[in-house]
Design a protein around this nucleic acid. Structure first.
Lengths: 188, 188
DNA sequence: GTCTATATGCAGATAGAC
DNA sequence: GTCTATCTGCATATAGAC
């Protein structure tokens, strides 16, 4: 792995664990095993490095979601597979957590990949739900867009509940609750 | 207002806007119009002041929720009133956002009020949903605990979606989606 | 109770040697 | 490409005068 790659990876880990404000250049260098000069040779500074890290994390999250969402089965089964997919629940969402960082939200370039990723996910889920309605699997009255927003919000909020309680079970409860509601909209 | 109160209020605002890591003693002092000596006279340091601020914020959030949840109407109507209650959506949840702060999660004393508040809220909503099931308003198969977890998660996740997109509408879409699903579980 | 002085170390770089 | 030196200012206090 190149020094540049190690710097990006170290930044990705630190952004996930400590957020943008809580991540210092020095900490990045130490984790990457790189010196100051090295970091500033490859990147213009902290925002530039963070941008590269966030883009990479966003890409990976999208790919991971697509692996599950693009699978086999009914619309309900694919949404369920997404919701129940294995997660490092107590670590939080590496993309969603950035929305609580004021410096990320204030910088359009840093916010863009976050927004695009969550919006892509919402749209992808909405498409699956729309198929489910069209095929007669779901009740006609189910609104794919709003339901998809609720699905994404439940996941993001599930992380909050899990971290507050220190237990991954809180995430599971929220997901179970949502899935039970969604199951009730399947056409008889 | 006393100097001590002004310090707590300033800390509450800053924790909401910038989180624990992003909030410095100096910023607190400036916002409160108090000097260094003054702050360290009234509080042992940043963690002590943050604890007072978090407890106060937690109390207020609970009181605000109770004002809506303790109102009149069916179980569905009260849950809806809670979900649609006016919120400063783009500012995020002053309690929930703290779960993304590693220094808060690592400190049991700071995490406790956060956990207790979200857990109280979940329990309060579960009680209302349980009444709704008992009264025949909701389908017998509705699980009050898990559904309540989904409601709280949707709100917390709604803030994430809103802040990512820069639009309060994203919060509204998630809430609409969840309410539509919940409405479908009302007994015929 | 509040103020000013003082202190260590980190944040976030820039400059220039090698 | 990487290293070391250097810089300004903030983070987070402590000490002691008033």
């Amino acid at each position: 792995m190149t020094t540049s790659e190690r710097l990006v990876d170290a930044t990705r880990e630190l952004l996930w664990e400590r957020g943008y404000t809580g991540t210092s250049p020095k900490a990045i260098q130490q984790r990457a095993g790189a010196g100051q000069g090295s970091m500033y040779h490859h990147f213009a500074g902290k925002p530039d490095l963070a941008l590269a890290a966030i883009r990479r994390t966003a890409e990976e999250m999208r790919a991971a979601a697509e692996r599950v969402l693009g699978g086999e089965g009914t619309a309900y089964a694919r949404v369920e597979a997404y919701l129940r997919r294995e997660r490092d629940v107590l670590r939080g969402c590496p993309v969603g957590r950035l929305t609580m960082d004021p410096d990320v939200i204030a910088d359009g370039a840093l916010r863009a990949p976050v927004d695009e990723t969550l919006d892509w996910l919402r749209g992808r889920l909405a498409g699956i739900l729309r198929e489910g309605v069209a095929s007669g699997e779901f009740d006609r009255s189910l609104d794919p867009e709003r339901t998809a927003a609720a699905v994404v919000a439940t996941v993001q909020g599930g992380y909050v509940l899990a971290r507050a309680s220190g237990s991954a079970a809180a995430f599971g409860a929220a997901v179970d609750g949502l899935l039970a509601l969604l199951a009730g909209r399947r056409a008889a």
